[in-house]
Computed example of a mutant assay.
Amino acid sequence: MTRKTQTIGLLANGLNEYGPSNIVLAVQEAAREAGYFVSIAGIRGFAQQEIADALQRFLDQGVEGIVVQVPHAHIPAMLQELNLGVPVVVIGTTADGSLSGVMVDQEKGACEAVQHLVDLGHTTIAHVAGPDGWIDAAARVSGWRRVLARAGLSEGPLLTGDWTAASGYQAGLKLAEDPTITAVFAANDQMAVGLLRALTEQGIRVPEDISLVGVDDLPEGEYLVPPLTTIRQGFRELGSRCLEVMLDQLNAAKSPQTAIVGSRLIVRASTAPKTQK
């Protein structure tokens, strides 16, 4: 009989970013409350060998299950191929084959953000997306497009950043050159911070000239000038649901399942009704 270790492996990418780091903390808290220890491996990229080596170290430790917080499009197929032999919960996706999934409904959150801008009368709404290949980035682009199509609006400019304030700043300099843009949806608050600085430096007022919405509800966002309208994600709920799904796999041998967590629009002063330019 195999001795239980009461340990869960947690593979995570982007620990220097607000969203991923808070998800990791939430999983840790939920695991501790359930009597489990979490062994964490942080990775910088998405190289298959790096991921495979980290997962093998978890198996060598005798972990009972593995949570994967690496929200890149090729990760589920890689995990299926590795056939790890323990329950696996992937954060950011739906269930896939032998894998369970726990996710925030990113597309719905993006729809809420863009619908808020449409309701304020904005008709040219740009989007600064996250990097190509990221599941969350693709879902937010999809939500942006869905709302614009539903409203009968043409897509505004679509730029791609890398989640950092620096990339948001560069995107803001480009968007400042287009006088038709009256609103921007940024795929996270860090890029929105960079956008805000770039627009301000170019003499563009937020929200009088351009309204701005981000995602994540970065704590500092409330103290920007102006305070940032954003989509608040339920990181703590995501962590607890992740552990519920994992424990279902461990204790009841249930088939892989999907848990979906909601988000909420937080309206602050960075958005306002469209004014005539």
Rank of each mutant, 00 (worst) to 15 (best):
V104T: 15
D132M: 09
R150A: 14
K174H: 13
A113E: 06
N22L: 08
V206G: 11
V24P: 09
A272R: 10
L25E: 15
L148M: 08
N188L: 08
D189A: 05
M1I: 10
L196Q: 10
L153T: 00
Q80A: 13
I210S: 05
L228E: 08
R44Q: 14
P227N: 01
V245M: 01
G42P: 14
L84S: 10
L243T: 05
E50T: 14
E64V: 04
N16V: 02
A30T: 02
V213N: 01
I125F: 11
G45A: 14
Q257N: 03
L212I: 06
Q202H: 14
D248C: 01
G14C: 05
P157R: 06
S21T: 02
E50V: 10
V215Q: 07
S154M: 03
Q56Y: 08
A110Y: 06
P76N: 11
G121M: 03
I135P: 10
L117P: 09
L82H: 09
A165C: 00
G262W: 00
R232F: 01
L159A: 04
Q276V: 08
L196A: 08
I181G: 11
D96C: 11
T93P: 05
G121D: 11
V38L: 10
V89D: 12
P20Y: 09
L238W: 09
D96P: 00
S21Q: 02
A110W: 04
V225S: 14
S39Q: 12
L84V: 08
A54Q: 12
G152L: 00
I51Y: 09
V141Q: 11
Q6H: 15
R44E: 15
R140M: 07
A110T: 08
N188K: 06
L59R: 11
G133D: 07
P226H: 10
V147W: 09
R236T: 15
H74F: 07
Q69F: 14
C242K: 00
A192K: 00
V27W: 03
T271M: 03
L15A: 13
Q276G: 01
I23L: 12
G234R: 07
E201H: 04
I260E: 11
G194V: 04
Q190K: 04
A129F: 09
A149P: 00
T7M: 13
D209L: 01
A31G: 15
R57K: 12
E222I: 13
D136S: 15
R264N: 12
I210F: 06
V102I: 10
T258C: 00
A198R: 08
D248Y: 00
T2A: 14
